[in-house]
Design a protein around this nucleic acid. Structure first.
Lengths: 190, 190
DNA sequence: ATTATCTATAGATCTATAGATAATGC
DNA sequence: ATTATCTATAGATCTATAGATAATGC
């Protein structure tokens, strides 16, 4: 049911997807949706939480790590790009839906805020500059959402490397520092 | 009518906005919409084209410019962040709507493809590296869409500078080169 | 004459609930 | 006994068209 909804929300759109369409794709009757979810909003919330929670768990672990900050930031960006690029559908597009601005999705926004804070912490630790570049860095990572939309068949591994390297350049690392961070194994990374 | 639709599409959502809601906001009757537009899709297309055309015009002009590539890239990123941040509503969110993937919006996608190509040209010219970093650069620029969504009251001028600087770091410019590119006036820039 | 707007409406949805029936777990 | 599913439907939309009326341009 969640899988069916995810596929429809990401291709047809959230509001364009009727509860009947979800039910048909999931092989149940329309009314059965309401036994499991309060409504379409609840389905969307569950999908959103499912995408941000793994990122936040990893970010929490990496922030507490002992490796050089640049290496941890590289690992986080690399993993998040992987999460956003993986899966049969581009769930990231759901972040941007105007409908998601509503109060019903406060829990999702709270988690995403925490993820943003983790990026800021790592970016500051890895940067020589005083500016907070966490926003820029998260922006570059999440730009794979639009990128995947434009080019559905991305070379995921290549994009992961390119974005993670770009993140380090963005916070001010020199090419030498970037190369060092990539080769350094981060125990908790992916 | 377009303004009313823009505001509703960006806040309520595209499919959630009925032709009646647009008409009410514009102060006309629901049926009158159909005298000016074939339907809601046509309104959305017009809005999308209106956001990408100014960017593309400037990009075309800058690609043909004679200033150092880094300065031209900085100016383009700066201006595009301004365009995406300006205006009463965050029109950029419309780019990501699943509904926009359809064939009806081919003209928009064609223009956006050309803009992407311009970014690639400038990024290659400004970079010492062989990789095409145009995608990363455009991604960083467009990340202001999500950023504006999370923080509606951005300091536009500060974000413009921060993103444009970030773009140059992304293509491999040193801090000295970045500083040089910012101070150099680009005749066609904004 | 042309363009813009209006009223009224056909026809097609869509959400969410009520109430019945089947399946499952203790 | 509880959980999951079903059928049927009320009530509320929503889009797009037909046809009438007003405003505008030559």
């Amino acid at each position: 049911m969640l899988d069916a909804a995810a596929a429809l929300f990401c291709t047809v759109g959230f509001t364009s997807t009727s509860t009947r369409a979800i039910a048909d794709a999931a092989g149940v009757r329309q009314a059965s949706i309401y036994h499991h979810f309060a409504g379409k909003d609840a389905i969307l919330l569950e999908l959103l939480l499912g995408t941000v929670r793994p990122s936040l768990d990893l970010a929490d672990a990496l922030v507490a790590g002992a490796e050089p900050a640049a290496a941890r930031l590289w690992a986080l960006a690399h993993a998040d790009v992987g999460l956003l690029s993986a899966g049969p559908v581009n769930l990231g597009v759901l972040y941007v839906l105007p409908e998601v601005a509503g109060e019903q999705f406060a829990e999702f926004h709270a988690l995403r805020s925490r993820l943003r804070a983790r990026y800021s912490e790592l970016a500051s630790a890895a940067s020589d500059d005083a500016d907070d570049r966490g926003e820029l860095v998260l922006g570059l990572v999440e730009s794979v959402i639009l990128r995947r939309r434009d080019t559905p068949d991305l070379d995921v591994a290549a994009v992961q490397d390119a974005v993670a390297d770009g993140v380090l350049r963005l916070v001010g690392c020199t090419p030498t520092e970037v190369a060092a961070a990539r080769t350094l194994p981060v125990s908790l990374g992916v």
